[in-house]
């Protein structure tokens, strides 16, 4: 096999030397982290267009079409209100339980969707991945952008519910913007972690609904978070109060619900610090974790 030793008969170089001489790089090599982030930034138009197209086509097979963007969160809120507000009647010490519940449900659903759609962010886009080379992190970010657009719609619904149930419109409401920003960063990181895990462990998709339900109950969405303190040992309650969805939900309630200020799980300052910490840790950690698997996505 003489052809394995010399790639170019004229120069007598080995293939590796020849490649180096002309600046060829190993195919599919993972770029350094900073370079990767820069490439990703160059793909911002792709991410924006893709998420818009996905949102536009998401209800294309239904008769009511985009109206479902509003109807889905409304129906969700109605179901939870029926069970936990009317039948089980948990709202002993929360004065405006409907608004309390809806805030929790909508904020939690943002993170829940990040996990569920993140798990399939790679596997659902194999066609694109196998056809074109681009930084794969664009896909989990797109997933988050899609969720963000749906969340903004739910937030409009939520604002309506909150005002209709008699809460005043205050300057505190502006705090919802930094809170959603932090949650979005947290979600991007979480989506990236789930995307990499989901691309390797295909069984994950079967398990996630159960994990998410457990997380829902641990996040104080359906009942007052102060219940944790009353029923759990001290350390467990402390641990649960650091739970990221719970932190973001409590911040949203702090911003929107004037009637709920004394029911907060802990001080707003502590909540903000936790929210920032989670966003930084998850955002950066998730990005690095996803980047380390860059070469594996879409391989057979």
């Amino acid at each position: 096999m003489a052809n394995t030793a010399v790639a170019d008969p004229q120069s007598g170089l080995t293939p590796a030397q020849l490649a180096q001489r002309y600046g060829l790089r190993v195919a599919g090599e993972r770029p350094p982290l900073v370079e990767y982030a820069r490439m990703l930034w160059a793909y911002r138009h792709f991410m924006a267009t893709y998420s818009r197209a996905k949102v536009a086509s998401s209800f294309s097979s239904t008769q009511l079409g985009q109206l479902w963007q509003v109807l889905t969160p409304l129906t969700n809120a109605a179901v939870y209100y029926l069970i936990f507000g009317v039948i089980l009647s948990q709202h002993r010490n929360v004065s405006n339980f409907i608004a309390y519940l809806c805030t929790g449900v909508f904020v939690f659903m943002f993170t829940q969707a990040a996990v569920q759609n993140g798990t399939s962010a790679i596997t659902n886009n194999l066609g694109l991945i196998r056809a074109l080379q681009f930084p794969r992190a664009a896909l989990p970010i797109t997933v988050t952008l899609i969720q963000l657009q749906q969340l903004l719609m739910s937030m409009v619904v939520l604002a309506g519910i909150v005002l209709l149930t008699g809460e005043p419109l205050t300057f505190n409401w502006l705090l919802i913007i930094p809170m959603l920003l932090l949650q979005t960063i947290f979600n991007v990181g979480l989506t990236m972690v789930m995307a990499r895990l989901g691309s390797k462990v295909t069984d994950l998709k079967q398990v996630m609904p159960f994990v998410m339900r457990t997380w829902l109950y641990a996040s104080g969405v359906l009942y007052p978070v102060t219940l944790f303190r009353q029923h759990l040992p001290h350390w467990a309650a402390n641990l649960l109060e650091c739970n990221p969805p719970l932190v973001y939900i409590e911040l949203a309630r702090h911003a929107l619900l004037e009637s709920n200020q004394e029911n907060l799980v802990t001080s707003p300052t502590r909540l903000w610090l936790l929210a920032i910490a989670w966003a930084v840790v998850m955002g950066l950690g998730g990005f690095v974790y996803f980047w380390r698997g860059e070469e594996e996505y879409g391989r057979g």
Partner: peptide, 17 residues
């Protein structure tokens, strides 16, 4: 697919411009 960088070679290498 190996040239496109979508399948890693088990041995050897693919260099591309």
């Amino acid at each position: 697919r190996a040239i496109a960088g979508l399948l890693p070679p088990a041995r050897g290498a693919v260099y591309t411009l």
